[in-house]
Design a protein around this nucleic acid. Structure first.
Lengths: 253, 253
DNA sequence: GTAGAGGCTGCCGCAGCGGCAGCTTCAACC
DNA sequence: GGTTGAAGCTGCCGCTGCGGCAGCCTCTAC
């Protein structure tokens, strides 16, 4: 069974032009070409096209798609991978929708209050779910910890990774609220937050008191981390460092 | 509170270059520009940026985004709209993932059987969830019905529309299976399928026996419809038409 | 005062097609 | 066997949405 270009176009929803393009760049050569130059596709090509379109949905570039499909030995494995990435993307959109929901709630609140913007300075969370990386990058300052988290991340689905990032951001915001409320770094609530952070860390890799202090200092010294903290609230980076200092001294000695 | 470019870039995850670009094209002018030419953004701009990014996620072009944001009077309404579109997109991805799941299942089946492709010739459903329109377009041959469905569609969420399309495709496939199994068009199972189709139609707009026959003939005569049926299985278009003929004669007279 | 981060304005380039033009080919009907 | 309409083909040009320079300015901060 073989189909000409227009037929494939109708079945798949792409244009004939696109199919020609995919042939041009070598991404999807037809099964065979007639003596008249016509392109004919068979089932294998349709399957490949489906995979291409799925990857394209995910924003993968055509050349990248080519490499992925070339490397992949087992079609079933590849499809399973695509499916899980689709679901992860779905979850990401879900998270985005939640962020928008929060913005809506805030806007409704401030409309009721009458004052234009009630939020303590946290524009950062307007964008939750849009930024990725950030953490992995900066973690290089702590090699063993970086390795441990990397291994951990490898076992998690993308959705779980995203969820973890949201949790960390939420923690930072709670800390910012405590700081804004004027709580000293040795206040119980603050130390409880730090404790939660520490437990999350220790779960992946043992962390000594001294290491924990080093991480605290990195909140201020590391470019990216400090920037992330300061963007949420000015002074948050040092606040976090000092809170960790107290925690390490009083509870990890 | 005002932020310079880099700060906004870090908060939102876009690059400074992008922000400059959005200014250039008039999509997101900064709140004000310093005497030194520096761009400064305030909360309103951040909110707008969030909306821009959400729409961009949905594949809307920048100029289109500009128009949408310009027309929108109430920010809250707009945000609610974005959220629902995000959720619809999420559902679409879900549907896509399901399509991939089906392909996986089929492939696993054929791998067990040992024969390379066991599916009755139905490449069409490889792409479910990727194609839109098709039906609306061809329905123009039946003006009142077209209008009725149009009104109906307007009251449904995008997810519901998608679901409807999937259902119709599923119906077509069931019919193809009955045909492949050699059932005559007046067999009970076949007539039951047609009955389900008829009820779905009649729910939107009264359909007389003669009109129903006309729709049946359109399955063969209308370019797009016939193509859609034939792509699933050769002969399906006439099979459907004949089944409708029988149905109209025996049950609608 | 000088170092380093961050700004700015051009300008070039690239991916992923859309949309032609100009010509051939196919299938079907008369 | 001639015509007609849909579908093919091969260029080639253009657009969008930035990335990535270069070249130069400016703002803290020590």
């Amino acid at each position: 069974m073989a189909w000409p270009t227009a037929e494939v176009a109708r079945m798949s929803g792409v244009t004939a032009r696109t199919l020609r393009h995919y042939d041009e760049v070598g991404l999807l050569p037809p099964a065979w070409i007639g003596s008249n130059g016509y392109r004919y596709y068979e089932e294998r090509q349709l399957l490949r096209l489906q995979q291409i379109l799925v990857l394209r949905e995910l924003g993968v570039g055509l050349t990248e798609i080519g490499r992925v499909l070339a490397e992949q030995v087992d079609e079933l494995d590849a499809l399973r991978g695509h499916r899980s990435r689709l679901l992860a993307e779905r979850d990401r959109l879900q998270g985005l929708a939640e962020t928008v929901s929060r913005t809506i709630a805030e806007l409704e609140q401030s409309r009721k209050d009458g004052n234009p913007m009630t939020s303590i300075n946290r524009p950062e969370n307007l964008f939750e779910g849009i930024r990725p990386e950030m953490y992995q990058d900066s973690l290089r300052d702590f090699p063993e910890l970086a390795e441990a988290t990397e291994q951990r991340v490898a076992t998690m689905s993308e959705a779980e990774v995203e969820a973890g990032q949201r949790q960390r951001t939420a923690q930072m915001i709670r800390l910012a609220e405590l700081m804004a409320a004027g709580r000293p770094v040795d206040a119980d609530e603050v130390q409880a937050e730090i404790d939660a952070q520490y437990r999350a860390l220790a779960e992946m890799h043992a962390v000594s008191a001294e290491e924990h202090r080093a991480i605290g200092r990195a909140c201020v010294d590391n470019e990216q981390w400090r920037a992330a903290y300061e963007a949420i609230a000015p002074g948050l980076a040092t606040y976090q460092r000092d809170a960790i200092e107290v925690y390490a001294t009083t509870r990890l000695s």
